[in-house]
């Protein structure tokens, strides 16, 4: 099966900075892919290359097996929702949504029909005659989405679609987005810097850093088994501990004053491991995969508390302490922490 969207070796340089550095990625039909990365990671450039606004220095973009190089934006069966929404201020909501269909030269009746469908799907009834400036942020977001969806694109590109919404609306809109995408069957790429958003909504997450695609996979897989230090720290702010690999495949970590022993022996050359804050427990027995320290800071976070624990070797460990496990220890309390062998994840680079 060929992928709906297939990127091979995409590279785009701005001066000496590589915004995209040899990115290869496949998106099957019907998939919701989250492209996750910090600012300047190249994720927006990737979107603009696929939409046709940016030309890659090298590499190819194929949509359903057709090479898109040299195809101008207006001839690509791909629609983009801009971060700022880019609604046309001089047109009504209905005219904004109808714009793309008018350009296709569809008959009036069909345009009216499809606009009405899009309006109903995104619950914009009664707003048709309004101008964008008379809408709330959430309504504008839905108009922008309707405008892109009404064209029934084979691939939908969303640039930080939830960025401009407040936290409450963001969660609800995210789930709506997921439902609409399932219903429409379009492949969807959502660019975001919000890891929670990416993990919650996407079928697959691709993490970008400095123009490179550093890891891709199902949200749980990427979260549980981060491949590199960057992914480990970017997703869920894991603890990264460095040390020396012992001959039997454990990691001797002077900063933690302990030995970390993973479920399977560490591969040769690995000198760092990731340890998720929520996989660390207080007060286990003294053996490998445990360490002594004192509570340096405790922050209440609602369903859990975040503890910063200064280990005997000097390392500062982030520990998530669930509320149901009782009150967290006070600052300055000496504690012993431990973790399961399968919580120790080897990092490559």
């Amino acid at each position: 099966m060929t992928a709906r969207l297939s990127l091979r070796g995409l590279t785009r340089r701005f001066g000496s900075v590589a915004a995209l550095d040899g990115v290869s990625l496949d998106v099957p039909a019907g998939e919701f892919l989250a492209l996750l990365g910090g600012s300047g990671s190249g994720k927006s450039t990737l979107l603009r290359v696929v939409a046709g606004f940016e030309v890659a220095d090298s590499g190819t973009v194929h949509l359903d097996g057709t090479d898109l190089s040299g195809v101008p934006p207006h001839r690509r069966p791909v629609n983009m929702m801009f971060q700022s929404y880019a609604l046309f201020p001089h047109m009504t909501v209905a005219a904004n949504i109808a714009y793309g269909l008018r350009r296709e030269g569809r008959p009036r009746a069909e345009i009216a029909d499809r606009v009405a469908q899009a309006v109903a799907m995104l619950r914009l009834e009664g707003m048709e005659a309004r101008r964008p400036h008379a809408l709330s942020g959430g309504q504008r977001q839905r108009v922008a989405l309707a405008r892109a969806l009404v064209k029934r694109p084979r691939l939908l590109l969303l640039d930080e679609p939830l960025g401009a919404l407040d936290a409450n609306l963001r969660e609800r809109t995210g789930f709506e987005l997921r439902a609409i995408q399932r219903e429409s069957g379009a492949a969807l790429i959502m660019v975001t810097h919000d890891q929670a958003e990416a993990l919650a909504l996407a079928d697959r997450v691709a993490v970008m850093d400095h123009g490179r695609l550093v890891q891709q996979g199902a949200p749980r897989e990427v979260y549980d088994r981060p491949a590199t230090r960057f992914v480990a720290e970017f997703l869920g702010a894991a603890n990264v501990l460095e040390g020396r690999r012992t001959p039997d495949g454990a990691l001797e970590c002077p900063a933690a004053a302990c030995t970390l022993r993973p479920a399977a022996p560490l591969p040769e050359g690995v000198t760092a491991v990731a340890l998720r804050p929520e996989r660390i427990r207080l007060a286990p027995a003294k053996d490998d995969n445990s360490a002594a320290g004192t509570v340096a800071e405790a922050a209440f976070r609602g369903e859990s508390s975040l503890l910063l624990i200064r280990l005997a070797g000097g390392a500062l460990l982030r520990v998530s302490h669930a509320e149901e496990d009782g009150a967290p220890p006070e600052r300055g309390t000496p504690v012993r922490v431990g973790w399961d062998a399968d919580a120790v994840v080897p990092l490559h680079g």
């Binding site: 939409a51 606004f53 101008p72 934006p73 207006h74 001839r75 791909v78 629609n79 983009m80 801009f82 700022s84 880019a86 609604l87 046309f88 201020p89 001089h90 714009y99 793309g100 350009r103 296709e104 405008r147 892109a148 064209k151």
Partner: peptide, 27 residues
Amino acid sequence: LDPLLEQAAEDLGATPGRAFLTITLPQ
């Protein structure tokens, strides 16, 4: 003018000339 508006128009299938006539000029 927001230069992204012309890009949005092109993304929706307008040629650059059409985007100018329907988006930029009316504004």
